[in-house]
Design a protein around this nucleic acid. Structure first.
Lengths: 211, 211
DNA sequence: GTCTATATGAGGATAGAC
DNA sequence: GTCTATCCTCATATAGAC
């Protein structure tokens, strides 16, 4: 008794149509978040969406393509979120990222998805390797750019090393969330707030705004 | 032609004795660092040390036990390093951790080992899950404790929230190293130095030492 | 669109010879 | 201490029926 599924349909081929595709994408994201890409079998995804394993591969030509589809989907969904950050410049960006951290507290699965997959994708033959290299470059570049606008407006001290600061901001968010995923007692929001205070104070020193 | 090994020995059972055990531990650490625990096969380890796969299992009863042995070994080796940090208190600890970051730049494999395995071990059924939960608790506790000594000596402002700061310090180190592993252009040392300046300035504000 | 059946291969672990 | 041979399970992917 290996195949423990019990679909009500009689195999006429009616199916769920597009609904299956959507269900597969969501379930794949959840399971990839738990066990990584390599650690997740197509069969486990199939079970969760109540399809056979080849049923899953009907919608995506391969497991790798499924992962890439999940990443593309998240990109479009995150597009809205990212664009709401686009206009936040200088000190305001640091506070806005606190809002993102707060928002993430409600979505441990998404946080875990990116945490687990980023580490797995350190291997340069991982299907998502290039994706994550690019992702981090873009995030750092955006933070640096928006902080620089604050510098140009005189809000941020002109001698702040923004190229060094952008990776720090990313590191704090990632690193705190990693600790939180491992141990929910870690208070990400409290720590981020202390960091933000520290950073803002540093950025404002000697700025035109301070005078 | 599947088994691509060509040992010179004739199978008399002489072997390398203890040398094999050592070689297995080191190779396992390297491969776990690259592909994680789940992503590494015993066969790949066996190939690298020029043993058969059952030959590897002669030294460790299972793959899980091999991982735990690797972790135990790192703990004893890191013991020396950790004890050199034990006496660094207050502001001095923040600078000493910069030395650790610098030291890590020469050992990407070790950094990657911990990065990859920590994320993989987020799964609560992972063989190293408890190990990493404990590890992070201990690291945070030690940082908090050593900063508190600086507080007691008056070097660090007394209203600093050390329970919030300890996770930040860990996050910055982990997060910067993750970005560096993904993209060697990231300048971990430069970013850590900026962070350290920022944090030290924050900690010194309103301290007795400042007066 | 979904299934069953199957090809093909990899992985962990064990038995038993030398 | 190490090997060969083997077992069993699991995984991805494909072929072809309905």
């Amino acid at each position: 008794m290996k195949n423990g599924r019990r679909r009500g349909r009689t195999g006429t081929g009616a199916g769920r149509g597009d609904g299956s595709r959507i269900a597969i994408l969501q379930t794949a994201r959840e399971l990839f978040a738990r066990r990584g890409f390599r650690g997740t079998s197509l069969a486990s995804i199939a079970d969760a969406v109540e399809l056979s394993q080849p049923g899953v591969l009907h919608h995506f030509p391969s497991k790798t393509e499924l992962l890439l589809a999940v990443l593309r989907q998240r990109d479009t969904e995150d597009g809205r979120l990212a664009s709401s950050l686009r206009t936040r410049e200088g000190i305001d960006l640091i506070r806005a990222l606190g809002g993102l951290v707060a928002h993430n507290q409600a979505s441990p699965e998404i946080v875990r998805f990116f945490t687990v997959l980023t580490s797995e994708a350190l291997a340069d033959d991982h299907p998502a390797h290039d994706y994550f290299v690019d992702r981090y470059r873009q995030i750092r570049a955006r933070i640096e750019r928006n902080l620089r606008r604050g510098q140009e407006s005189g809000e941020v001290r002109c001698d702040a090393d923004l190229e060094a600061i952008a990776p720090i901001v990313v590191a704090v968010m990632d690193g705190l969330q990693l600790q939180w995923l491992l141990d929910r007692d870690v208070d990400v929001l409290r720590s981020y707030d202390v960091f933000a205070r520290m950073l803002i104070q540093y950025l404002e020193q000697g700025s035109a705004a301070e005078l």
